[in-house]
Amino acid sequence: MIADHVRVVGNEARAAIVSDRRITGLSAEVIAELVAEVGPLWHERHQARLESRPRKRAVGAGAKHQLVFIDQLLAALVHLRHGATHDVLACWFGVDRSTITGAVGEVRPLLAERGCTIAAGVRLRTLAEVIEHLGSSGRTGIDDGTEIRVRRPAAGRKDREKFISGKNKQNAVKAMILTDASGRLPFCSPTQPASCADITHPRQLGLVKHLTDGPPVEILADAGYQGLGAQTGGRVVTPPHRKFKKNPPEWYEEIYERQRKAHSSRRIRVEHGIAHLKNWRALARHHGRREHMSDTIQAVAGLLSHQQTATRTDRQAQ
């Protein structure tokens, strides 16, 4: 029997959330796996936090969580999937807004740390692991950046202009997305302010070093990454440079367009991967704190890759 001060969503409401994939974006089987995996980590971290601070009473005394873990997880999933505000979720779950804020704040980092699932029980968390996986499996990687609009920093704040995107002239953050040739999502980087150039971000993440020191891997990228090919011995493949900027011969234009379209056709899978990420409304336009964006996009990437792997496994079993 759950204590009276612990608030739980009714069994019917919880069953409706879990059973309808449109609400969380995840199947009931994947949610069950999340509960079994993340629940013990959440409890362990919560206990460590209680034991680490100076105390005047025993560990476990004082106010308790108003939501059991599964309801905290469901609240975080609905928030990430639909971008629902904490006020709306508080009304739905019958608790105070601060309770939802605390629940999402505790669950989101745990989801972000899981990494991307590429097979049952196999996760990739770092760029080095992704390059190693692509090399060992003989797969081609596809690299691209994506921007997510965020709130403008307050007037007078230091480095206020660094969030302005040179491409869209809007306040945003940028993340690097890497998929394989089949569109699976093995890596999503932490975010950077949008003023960071496309080519600078992978350099900061160590892509050049991983490619030159690691196994032979082909990475397809767009024109924003031109220059990495020379640094990686041709392992980063970008569209061809335009040799004639003025009055090009007709034969050259035809060849150039053919090469450019062929490269774009090979890269299209990464655009699909980014589109699937943006279907999670928390990434369409972020209205919360910019400091949470890295955890948010990496949590969504991990959840999306987990569901994609589970769906692919089910289809193969059939």
Rank of each mutant, 00 (worst) to 15 (best):
P216R: 11
A230H: 12
I268W: 09
R53H: 08
T313F: 02
R260K: 14
E29H: 13
E44W: 04
V95S: 05
F187R: 08
D159E: 13
I219P: 04
R289G: 12
Q204P: 00
D295L: 14
Q318S: 14
V150A: 03
P216K: 05
I297R: 00
H306Q: 08
R108Q: 14
K243R: 15
L304D: 14
I177H: 06
S195C: 04
I70H: 06
E253S: 08
K261M: 15
K158Q: 12
A275W: 13
A128I: 08
A75N: 01
A112W: 15
R290T: 15
I100E: 00
R125G: 05
E106W: 00
L89Y: 02
R49D: 13
G105N: 09
I255E: 14
L303N: 04
S182Q: 15
E250W: 02
D180G: 00
G166C: 07
L73T: 02
C91P: 00
E291W: 07
K167P: 11
T313N: 11
L26P: 10
R290Q: 08
K278A: 06
D71E: 11
H272G: 01
M176E: 15
S264P: 01
R260N: 02
G105L: 07
R22I: 11
T191D: 09
A32E: 13
I164H: 04
K64D: 11
L277E: 06
R203E: 14
A3S: 12
R184L: 13
D71I: 03
G166T: 06
G233I: 04
